[in-house]
């Protein structure tokens, strides 16, 4: 991108020298979960399609949903959506021009990690409680 440096000045060392910050981790996780959620939405569409086609199409999907692998994918998708949602709310708060003090941004970053696990657990409990009902 920069081409041949015109002098021997050192280049920005941004890819070699960094230290962990939770704001950085949350930013990377937001992208990772975002891409994962897109794949999840594609799976939802495939699931809908399988149900619409009939029992023969649905059989492997239903088997996957109740298998251990399906459980792991399901749990991962639930957490991924929860994280993206809570961190997205953090970004909406930032859009209002607030929350940028380093201490605040770090605190909300940790809160999103902890909160995403709590929210995911809450959703699983609510879903299990609604089983057979809704």
């Amino acid at each position: 991108m920069a081409g041949t440096p015109s002098s021997a000045r050192p280049l920005s060392p941004h890819l070699q020298i960094w230290r962990f910050t939770v704001t950085m981790a949350a930013s990377i996780t937001q992208r990772g979960t975002g891409v994962a959620n897109f794949a999840g939405v594609a799976l939802i569409a495939a699931w809908l399609f399988a149900v619409a086609q009939g029992p023969a199409f649905f059989a492997p999907v239903g088997a996957l949903l109740t298998s251990p692998i399906g459980g792991v994918v399901l749990a991962g998708f639930i957490w991924s959506l929860c994280f993206h949602m809570l961190n997205g709310l953090r970004y909406l708060y930032w859009d209002s021009g607030r929350g940028f003090k380093p201490a605040t941004a770090r605190a909300t970053g940790w809160a999103v990690y902890v909160g995403s696990v709590a929210l995911a657990a809450l959703i699983v409990f609510a879903g299990l409680a609604a089983r057979g009902g809704a």
């Binding site: 029992p55 059989a59 959506l81 879903g127 609604a130 057979g132």
Partner: peptide, 19 residues
């Protein structure tokens, strides 16, 4: 998304007819 995730957990074990 919140509605969907709760429903997903609630219906993950459904038979074809139920789903």
């Amino acid at each position: 998304a919140v509605w969907f995730l709760i429903s997903l957990v609630a219906h993950a074990g459904d038979s074809f007819a139920e789903m």
